[in-house]
Design a protein around this nucleic acid. Structure first.
Lengths: 236, 236
DNA sequence: TGACTTATTGAATGCCTGTTCAGCGAATTT
DNA sequence: AAATTCGCTGAACAGGCATTCAATAAGTCA
């Protein structure tokens, strides 16, 4: 109602290439400020004034671009969700991958350096932890979560009998796997000294290999191969 | 400074038995209202006015008993943390338990029906998810968390060589276990239909048995024995 | 250039917040 | 019985909040 100009350009590319590009950049600038603000001050401490200050804009601009604070949060969540989707789909897209390798690729993408940044992890748990924000999360991200879940179930199903007794209920097995990754995420956020990204990735892979010994690392696998700390220079 | 009356009674039992008992009951009433309020409205949506309304008291009473909103939150957190400590310590106290059984008891206590209530899980993730609330959490609960961690490490160490290669770094192994339980908690909160309490408890036990096949279920264990849903009537 | 649309500003508005405090009834003490 | 403390109330207060909007700048088009 406020955005669309019915006369000049009815198509979705915006009024003008230059304008719409600048508009997207502005929105991204505000979304980035929102991410940093939530990470630093928490959801309850995130105000339009602080976000605007971090973005270096006036207080009115956020409402101009997103209509309301809640819509700004929706856009922020959607931005991160799409970033994640792009990453796991790119990793799993390679047609030369076997089903097992594709499953591994999706699991590893949850520990990609672009995703496992404290700043971004803070956003997910901010929304998961707040009763009011959870309904926003479901409205915005539920479909994308289901998409990844379905893709993973499909791969697991294609693994067939080689997957062992976890195949009795593939969906349930995958839900359990994802729960483990969620727990690793949480502990990366809470205790970054004890939970480094690469060590968590290895833990996740070890867990996967323990679930499907016949598929990964050829035969009886160790439940937790090398649960040690890594010292790679990660994000701040 | 505001509570202690230096003249009438210097001991810690309070001014009078009747009075102090009523006082404790009032504080508990406010803490319970706080729990329900955070669970329903989130941390950001929890106000003194709403808490007071849920407790059926005036707005001034919360500040009278807890001095500030932040201290009320601290008291709420401390209440839940002590409840948890009481439960796992009671379960693990039985001197007739073997080390392995005691380890199992501590793990199972995380899925006790008194602990795994949506209302209470919501509190933990509310504090974990908010950057501002995390510093409160650390200040209040860190010691109690460490206490359980240390107790678990001690048991694992006493298991000795029977624990397999997870013994290479007991602390790391236990941190990984706890991360999994955290993830199950999160999914119990987010998706209660897919993650029932007893099923999660069984998942946790299965994971434990996979980590220490020589100790639990005598010999090579299944990574995930029966990851199915249960249909016990739990809390609301 | 001039007409027009879009982007941005920041002061103003009204609501909601946590906290304070004077007052009061009841319990307790002297 | 009188004095005093304690528990509790709710109106009052000051500060912070999201949102609005008139004014203005910048960009686009005819």
């Amino acid at each position: 109602m406020t955005q669309q100009t019915a006369k000049t350009r009815p198509d979705d590319s915006g009024p003008t290439p230059g304008r719409s590009a600048a508009k997207v950049a502005r929105r991204l600038q505000l979304i980035d400020a929102t991410i940093r603000c939530i990470a630093k001050h928490g959801l309850s401490g995130t105000t339009i004034a602080k976000v605007s200050d971090l973005a270096g804009t006036s207080v009115g601009l956020a409402n101009f671009h997103f209509d309301s604070k809640e819509r700004l949060f929706e856009a922020t969540l959607l931005h991160l969700a799409h970033e994640q989707r792009g990453i796991w789909q790119a990793r799993a897209a390679d047609p030369s991958l076997t089903p097992a390798e594709r499953l591994l690729a999706i699991v590893e993408s949850r520990f990609d350096s672009r995703i496992c940044q404290r700043r971004k992890l803070a956003i997910w748990f901010a929304f998961w932890g707040d009763a009011g924000a959870r309904v926003i999360y479901r409205r915005v991200v539920a479909d994308l979560d289901d998409e990844r879940l379905d893709a993973t179930v499909a791969i697991l199903t294609s693994l067939g009998a080689g997957a062992g007794q976890a195949m009795a209920d593939p969906r349930s097995a995958i839900l359990g796997m994802e729960a483990f990754y969620d727990g690793l995420w949480l502990n990366m956020l809470l205790y970054p000294d004890d939970f480094k990204r690469l060590a968590c990735r290895d833990r996740a892979i070890g867990h996967l290999a323990a679930l499907f010994p016949a598929v990964f690392s050829g035969g009886a696998a160790d439940p937790l191969p090398t649960p040690l700390l890594d010292q790679e220079a990660d994000d701040a």
